[in-house]
Design a protein around this nucleic acid. Structure first.
Length: 579
RNA sequence: GCCGACGUGGCUCAGUGGUAGAGCAGCUCACUCGUAAUGAGCAGGUCCCCGGUUCGAAUCCGGGCGUCGGCUCCA
């Protein structure tokens, strides 16, 4: 949250102060760091004299309520640098002293005071502590001073605050809803995937139902890509370290790669691939290419391995082995704009299919302070210009994010909002002048002379792991019919209806639908309940009446009983659902 | 990686030094049933792992592994 004019900004920032005051009163000697407002609340970082736990939060919250009731006036004061420094030296607040040092000469040094408590702060704030009423402390966590892991670890307390009780309740309900949709929980309940310590952290095992989901997404995208002139390739999961030395990964991506494998006999070192591009480049470079061959589009669902820090792993959203819906497009400079736009068009098609209608574009550019990037400044600015221009031509809005580029080039990221309004990073397109240079790629132009192509790296889903994590939470596990691992469950009422039910399931499978029969000796109501819990889109109840009339009794998940229709009529409905 | 919390049958959890428990899921049997839970019975656990303390450890101590919340929002 950055807009200081937003009234929520003041409220949240003031709530952070309120919490810091409560903490100071309860735990004298606590050192204060920073406490800004954030997207949906606020936090404050403290160095406590002795460590606290989540069990202490209710007590802090109660004290906050009490200070709110005191209804103290919140006042802004300005102090000279000398006075400010003296104030914090006396009260032993090293973090505040460091913050004062960072304030440029000439800028005012302002404080906000409420009762006998004050804090160095730019403001603005609400006028009285009594205006801060509808808040809740949420969690406690560690955070480095200034976000730098070389610094001391502080204790951060997160909270949320809203203008009204109704808005607070609404927010807390949304948190509850998010918890119910947690893809890690649903992934287990719906039997989609599994992690075991024996395989290793961040290395997912796809269960049959998850694999169906994954293959369905793959098939959809493969079809779109085939239509758009992509060619499939398949490359190995490992490569000689020489390949990655040449690409620059070895020096710039080193800390993210799994330890290397040594083949001492062959005097060779192998690397588990962290990206597919060098492999695809080998394919491009294996022949002399003509300008007539370009754009040359190589696509692969390529599995890559990255050694993410253990604490960063998070279900399917952050894993160590994952499959990108990757492709590399080798183009002439003239083709760049059109190809780039075609990629954005493909991405929009994918979003529409997945019913993710709310999204924005983020252009990730270099952080000039960082030296992890390869290639010349000219290449970088050419690539950046190309992306901005293509996006401008498409009349799409974008934001710029410094430091979010890949090491070989800037990128355009697709930021998607799910059903709960949460934002996720999905697909990405990157323009790359640098790897073609490193690998000395060429094509023969109309002039009969060699020229250097450009590369576009792109992945509309991003990775199958992440997109499926996103989709699970977006749909709360209730996938649309075309994606659902089981589309139809046939439910015979009694034993004597089993063969008719199996016949119906077989007909559906013959027609290409995923269907199964619940043959257990259970009551119909119970089988329906279990199918609903399993979030299967269609249930077909088969009893004497249906067998006599040649119909199936259709029930849709969430919609209830839809009545009896002939099987062919039900299949038409299925087909309409799946197109 | 770092800080903190947590780790007991497939799942959710109870059990705080004295022979491991419940509900759900599973299996078996009976019931043969028309749109969100039929009943009874059975089975299932090296209490994450390794070491230590103790007559005795799920429980206490140490180490490891795993999971979760954070470490990006900079007075």
């Amino acid at each position: 949250m950055t807009d200081a004019r937003d009234p929520l900004y003041s409220l949240r920032h003031s709530a952070a102060h309120l919490m810091a005051q409560a903490v100071t009163e309860l735990y004298p000697g606590t050192k204060l760091a920073i406490g800004p407002p954030i997207e949906e609340g606020f936090y404050y970082d403290f160095e406590f004299p002795k460590s606290i736990t989540a069990e202490d939060l209710p007590q802090i919250e109660a004290r906050m309520q009490e200070i709110s009731k005191r209804d103290l006036t919140i006042e802004r004061l300005t102090r000279s640098r000398q006075e400010a420094t003296a104030l914090y030296s006396k009260s032993n607040q090293p973090y505040k002293l460091e913050l004062i040092e960072a304030i440029p000469d000439g800028d005012p040094i302002s404080f906000y005071e409420q009762g006998d408590w004050f804090d160095l702060c730019r403001g603005p704030h609400v006028n009285r502590t009594g205006q801060i009423r509808h808040f809740k402390l949420l969690s406690i966590a560690g955070a480095y001073w200034r976000g730098d892991e070389r610094n001391r670890m502080l204790t951060r307390i997160y909270g949320t605050v809203w203008p009204t009780q109704a808005e607070l309740d609404d927010y807390l309900n949304r948190l509850e809803e998010a918890k119910k949709r947690d893809h890690r929980v649903l992934g287990r309940e719906l039997e989609l995937f599994l992690f075991t310590p024996e395989v290793g952290s961040g290395l997912p095992l796809w269960l049959p139902k998850g694999a169906v989901l994954r293959e369905t997404l793959e098939q959809f995208l493969k079809m779109e890509q085939q239509r758009r002139g992509y060619m499939p390739v398949v490359t190995p999961h490992i490569a000689s370290s020489r390949l990655y030395a040449k690409s620059g990964h070895l020096s710039t991506f080193n800390n993210k790669m799994f330890p290397m494998m040594n083949d001492e006999e062959a005097h060779e070192t192998f690397i588990l691939k962290p990206m597919n591009c060098p492999h695809h480049i080998q394919i491009y470079a294996s022949q002399t290419r003509s300008y007539r061959d370009l754009p040359f589009r190589l696509a692969e669902f390529g599995t890559v391995y990255r050694y993410e820090q253990s604490g960063e792993l998070n279900g399917m959203l952050r894993v160590r082995g994952f499959t990108q819906d990757d492709a590399h497009l080798f183009v002439t400079p003239d083709q760049l704009q059109d190809e780039f736009k075609a990629v954005v068009d493909l991405m929009v098609t994918v979003l529409r299919k997945l019913n993710l209608q709310e999204y924005r574009l983020r252009i990730g550019v270099r952080d000039p302070e960082d030296d992890k990037y390869i290639g010349s400044d000219e290449n970088w600015s050419a690539a950046e210009t190309a992306i901005k221009q293509a996006v401008a031509d498409l009349k799409m809005d974008y934001s710029i994010s410094k430091g979010d580029a890949a090491f070989y080039g800037p990128k355009l990221d697709l930021m998607v909002r799910d059903a709960l309004g949460r934002e996720w990073q999905m697909g990405t397109v990157q323009v790359d002048y640098n790897l073609p240079e490193r690998f000395e790629l060429e094509y023969i132009g109309e002039d009969g002379k060699p020229h250097r192509p450009l590369m576009i790296h792109r992945a509309p889903f991003g990775s199958l792991e992440r997109i499926i994590g996103l989709l699970i939470e977006h749909y709360a596990g209730a996938f649309p019919t075309w994606l659902a691992p089981i589309q139809v469950r046939v439910i015979p009422i009694a034993d004597r209806h089993q063969s008719a039910a199996s016949e119906i399931a077989r007909q559906l499978r013959d027609a290409g639908y995923r269907s199964e029969v619940d043959v257990r000796n259970e009551k119909t109501g119970y089988k329906i309940r279990q199918a609903e819990v399993a979030k299967i889109p269609y249930m077909l109840v088969i009893g004497d009446r249906d067998i006599a009339a040649g119909t199936v009794s259709v029930r849709h998940r969430g919609e209830g009983d839809l009545g009896a229709v002939p099987i062919h009529q039900f299949m038409e409905r299925l087909a309409a659902d799946c197109n």
